[in-house]
Nucleic acid binder design. Structure first.
Length: 276
DNA sequence: CGCATTTCCTGGAGGC
DNA sequence: TGCCTCCAGGAAATGC
């Protein structure tokens, strides 16, 4: 379940390892996970240099020369790895990008195929693109300031659903929503518009602290997630509520409760996070 | 508009 | 040991 911290960890690793290198060749095994410019990556990409690696929301974005942008959405089980070209290719590896320099390649795997790869080019910007749409995303929580953050929250929706909505706040998924709400002592079903200025500011600080700590631990690995170097994250050891149903709250020892909110398992401490 | 429900998909977990 | 069912979960579409 890569969320913002996992995508950030991958982007940082890629920046260290592939920035400035060239895409020598591309092998696509599944075309149906690729969207954007209709032309095949095999003809579009070879020879281009990697000029930037960025993260936006939960997405990892690679900018190549000539205004070409590769946007990886990892969904549930998406993984980006750098591997020796001769190494075993794991099942569900949909695209392989051979890199200049060492005999290495970037691989995109996604067994469950909730993710995808968007190839945006000057042509797609002029004429729109084919395949699945890449939804707009909202405020970047790490750089957001209190006023726009509060503005985004002044709606009559449950705070959990709102934080999960990528068009509103970008990059928070189930884990970091629950962890942030716990840190801010806010019940997940609270109507967002009922939070006052102080509560919103406190929530933003909690979100930022939670995300920054998770990034420092290379994200959370529950099952699938690995960083681009193949290593799991370790932030799951610091989870306060997520997947801790029935276990004592680390602040007050009250058992953590699990409910369904916004269609997702939601964990919170009923004593620390009171409704109203 | 809000929000619950359904769909996509596979691997891992649990039941027997 | 092996087969079967169930289910998580991000995003988008559908229904109310």
């Amino acid at each position: 379940m890569p969320e913002l911290p996992e995508a950030e960890s991958i982007a940082r690793f890629l920046r260290r390892t592939i920035l400035g290198r060239r895409l020598k060749a591309v092998h696509v095994k599944r075309t149906d996970i690729i969207h954007g410019d209709g032309r095949s990556l095999e003809v579009l990409l070879p020879g281009r240099r990697i000029v930037a690696v960025e993260r936006r929301a939960k997405r990892v974005e690679i900018a190549a020369s000539g205004g070409v942008r590769l946007i990886f959405r990892l969904g549930m089980s998406g993984r980006i790895t750098i591997a020796p070209s001769a190494s075993f290719v794991e099942p569900h590896t949909h695209v392989r990008f051979l890199l200049s320099g060492r005999r290495e390649e970037l691989r995109f795997r996604d067994p469950r195929r909730f993710g995808g790869l968007w190839c945006l080019t000057p042509a797609t910007r002029r004429h729109g693109y084919t395949g699945r749409q890449l939804g707009e995303v909202g405020l970047e929580p790490l750089t957001a300031t209190p006023a726009p953050f509060r503005c985004a929250l002044t709606r009559r929706r449950q705070i959990k659903a709102l934080l999960m909505d990528q068009a509103v706040i970008a990059g928070l998924g189930n884990i970091y929503c629950d962890e942030s709400l716990y840190a801010a002592r806010i019940h997940p079903l609270t109507i967002a518009a009922s939070l006052n200025r102080v509560a919103c500011a406190s929530l933003l600080r909690a979100v930022q602290r939670t995300l920054n700590r998770a990034i420092a631990h290379n994200g959370s690995t529950l099952a699938d997630y690995r960083n681009a170097d193949g290593e799991p994250g370790s932030f799951q050891r610091l989870h306060r509520v997520y997947q801790r149903e029935g276990r004592p709250c680390r602040r007050c020892r009250t058992p953590i409760v699990r409910i369904l909110a916004a269609g997702r398992s939601t964990f919170f401490c009923p004593a620390c996070q009171k409704l109203n």
